[in-house]
Design a protein around this nucleic acid. Sequence first.
DNA 1: ACGGTGACGCTCA
DNA 2: TTGAGCGCCACCG
Length: 101
Amino acid sequence: MPKAFDEAVWRLLRKIPRGRVTTYKRIAAALGKPGGARAVGNACGKNPRAPQVPCHRVVKSDGSIGGYAKGAGKKISLLRSERVGIRGNRVLELKKIIFRF
DNA sequence: ACGGTGACGCTCA
DNA sequence: TTGAGCGCCACCG
């Protein structure tokens, strides 16, 4: 059975539109845990219905891709398929496509 | 209770 | 700019 924290994270993930992304840090802050970015990553990793629940739209605060249960490469293809610009291990124009809760 | 781990973040050399 | 170091939270044995 999932923990309450995990559910809370997944609930926020569902609000991120296609073609936009957010960061682990922002999700943590939105949940009232400003220093809990790492814990958010853990919760994303346990997400049982990806990519229905778009955990692939969560990147690091500096714009680098971050991890993914099925491999970072998979995460990148998913983002590209939503027209998110990526170069190397970085999303382009993060400030312009980031989703603010 | 205790210590280790991890899809992170910030600072500083 | 890039990497090492250290701190953070939630979770697990």
